[in-house]
Amino acid sequence: MRPLYWDFMIENIWVIARGIPYSIEIAVIALFFGFFIGLITAIARMYKVPVLNQISSIYIAIIRGTPLLIQILICYYGIPRLLQYINYVYNLNFNINSIPPIFFVFFCFSIYTGSYLSETIRGCILSVDPGQMEACYSVGMTTTKGMMRVVLPQAMISAVPNIANQFIGLIKDASLAFVIAIPEILGQAKIVAGRSSKFLEAYIVAAAWYFVICWICQRFINIIERRINRQQKKA
């Protein structure tokens, strides 16, 4: 049995930490765009907007039915092909290879998050008492106005815990981005491990970093949730 190399782990804590900005960047951007995608698709499905409703259903089914890892690979290798084709058809001269790989990750993770948030947001909108909307109509508001001013704000409050969980999930899912050479936390760990063959040690350090980040996020989320609860009680 060989022992764990503690020195190696301590030495490489900050080397592996270099991946943290990538992980957080991916999670934040994916959550931001994913939220809007989710909102649009949720509303399209609730109000059965023609065409958009069908597209949304198919999109959610496909994204939820395939592994994220495969989605990343398809985006990274597939989107350039698609752009090449568009270039060819429209005679454009857009340099596809100048797109940094991280954009494919942003794109893919946004789409992925959108499909999951769509269901969350839909559930939260449905949880708002239908009487609220009826009240809006009674004072002459349109559906859009009622949605924006009365229903959505209430729905979003109940969506906060779910969205926050999604964020923590995203930070962990970002570990898949190393398949397309994004050196995030796990990527950095694999790089130092590949150099030294001390895989277990590197993975332990990476796990510790993920744990620390997620723990901090969880604390923040708890604070936010408590605030919301207090305000709701006041109201």
């Binding site: 290798y77 596809i96 290879n97 190393f178 398949v179 050479a181 050196p183 990527g187 694999k190």
Partner: peptide, 15 residues
Amino acid sequence: YYDSELPAVLEDIAN
């Protein structure tokens, strides 16, 4: 750094 096999790297070089 790549965590993949050579063919994936070659494809990126070719592209």
